[in-house]
Design a protein around this nucleic acid. Structure first.
Lengths: 114, 114
DNA sequence: ACATGGTACCTTGTAGTGCAAGGTACCAGC
DNA sequence: GCTGGTACCTTGCACTACAAGGTACCATGT
């Protein structure tokens, strides 16, 4: 069963584009300094990228399983302890590769736009 | 059951990025002149974007259902007739929106990279 | 006339991924 | 010890690309 006034491409598509670079952006975010989940969401939001918890946690787990990042618990002054994420060596290497992938992709799009 | 030496993010991720902009790129491709499927794949390949038939056909159907493009049959001089795709008015409008989405996304990534 | 190779179109089943919604645990203040 | 806030995590659903397999039409050679 589908809604009759189904959403047209543009809205949906914008979300689709965001998906593709999400993992990349999260690695970018952490690369500057270690952060915890809510912190990451905040940073991405400041860059106009909307992400929610339900998306982020599974993604962080996946990145940890592939050993791109590690986490350490730290006490908070107000509330429960926080899980700070940080890039591993492999994580930094992968990020470098992804930066190239991104610029390569941007180049392709430019090429098609002309 | 997973392969033990499972593929690490970078390869997989690059594909993921491509996915996000695929629909956008296809609309871009057609926007210049009407094309048929193999033709589109060829054009994308020249821009370093790999797409296969099994991906393209369902995508074109989807775009037709949402009325972003139409098709017309034309005879070929060598082989079966070809289905040429072309943007509709709504398609051109959507494409304009997507161009903005793309540049907005690129901006966000740049913002995070700095 | 009909077999063969090439071109083009299309469908089915599978795996990966983001997201909405709901759930658990810890801390501080009243 | 109750309440509100913060933080972490899981489950079920919908969407999408892709691999693989299938159909149809045309031209050429024998």
């Amino acid at each position: 069963m589908k809604e009759p006034g189904k959403e047209i491409g543009s809205e949906n598509q914008k979300a689709q584009m965001r998906k593709g670079v999400l993992e990349f952006c999260i690695l970018l975010t952490i690369s500057k300094e270690k952060k915890y989940a809510s912190n990451i969401i905040q940073t991405l939001k400041e860059a106009d990228l909307i992400v929610v918890e339900g998306t982020l946690y599974p993604l962080l787990s996946r990145l940890r399983q592939t050993e791109l990042l590690t986490h350490t618990w730290e006490e908070s002054q107000s509330g429960p302890p926080r899980k700070y994420y940080e890039l591993t060596k492999k994580g930094r290497e992968t990020l470098a590769t992804l930066k190239q992938s991104w610029s390569s992709l941007a180049k392709s799009v430019d090429h098609l736009t002309e």
